[in-house]
């Protein structure tokens, strides 16, 4: 007999309480996103619930927002979206590029060093983002030169490193030394064995790390809130400055685009690392 943590039948009050709490958890997780999605289809100008009629007008508004060439606003939504994407892609590239060799060195190297290094690269995960934002702002302000987009890229790289490294390490764990030894004994140089044998085997983990870096950087708000300037600003900052006084339905439609993109990417990550590693 298989004794589950969640009995399929019977179980009385235990099963009821566990299921009820799980449902509350699911509701708390999903309700805000669901409500944003419903309200974005409202035909009304205000955000009263329930919407009296449904329409796509706010979606057309968003598309108009992106296609109108209105040069009057200093920082348009198109500029900030492009900056967001550019930052996310650079962050994704750098973090993956540095984490692959590190994951290899940690998996094959000294066990004692591994623990310490893993701890070091987990630090940004628990470090208060506000403090990080202020610290990076202080450093950027004290520099004599304008570092442009890098003022956002550099903090974002630190922020995504834990996630990318975790995925690369998870991928390395499944690769035994024997495969590499086989390649070397067949005449490949050790570097060549890494490039031709290990990296292709790590592919799923590397891809999952890439996507993680992309979504985290693209959605990051707190650090960017301190670092943005008039010239370098991202989409979340644009949304914040637009809704700081009141909530406007076209921002909700824009939010739905972001939600859909995020869901698609998370499903991809989940597929890539299915069952082999934990998400973080």
């Amino acid at each position: 007999m298989r004794v589950g943590l969640l009995p399929n039948e019977g179980g009385g009050s235990y099963r009821f309480v566990i299921i009820a709490l799980a449902i509350v958890g699911i509701l708390i997780s999903s309700l805000p996103v669901i409500v944003v999605t419903i309200m974005s289809f409202s035909a009304a100008d205000n955000t009263g619930f329930p919407p009296e009629a449904l329409s796509l007008r706010w979606y057309w508004d968003v598309i108009a927002l992106f296609t109108a060439d209105d040069a009057s606003s200093a920082q348009s939504v198109v500029d900030s979206t492009l900056t967001s994407l550019l930052v996310a892609v650079i962050v994704m590239g750098i973090s993956t590029f540095v984490c692959i060799p590190l994951a290899y060195a940690l998996a094959r190297g000294d066990r004692r060093i591994r623990g310490g290094m893993e701890l070091l690269f987990t630090l940004p995960l628990v470090f208060p983002l506000v403090i990080l934002g202020i610290a990076f702002l202080l450093i950027a302000e004290s520099l004599r030169v304008d570092i442009g987009i890098w003022r956002i890229v550099i903090p974002h790289v630190a922020l995504v490193l834990p996630f990318v490294l975790r995925n690369c390490l998870g991928a390395m764990n499944g690769i035994s030394v024997e495969i590499e030894e086989a390649a070397v004994s067949l005449g490949a140089s050790p570097l060549r064995a890494i490039w031709d044998v290990v990296i292709p085997l790590m592919k799923a983990g590397i891809l999952a790390g890439l996507i993680f870096a992309l979504i985290i950087s693209f959605n990051e708000f707190t650090i960017t809130f301190f670092m943005y300037t008039i010239d370098v600003s991202t989409l979340p900052i644009w949304m914040y400055s637009r809704t700081v006084s009141s909530l406007d339905p076209s921002t909700l439609a824009l939010s739905v685009f972001i939600i859909v993109a995020d869901v698609v990417l998370i499903v991809l990550v989940d597929k890539l690392i299915a069952g082999r590693a934990s998400l973080f």
Partner: peptide, 18 residues
């Protein structure tokens, strides 16, 4: 998994709107 993970990753502004 997606339902639970989304709030951690999704833009905090969108969730605040919600």
């Amino acid at each position: 998994t997606v339902t639970i993970l989304l709030p951690l990753i999704l833009n905090l502004l969108v969730q605040a709107y919600g």
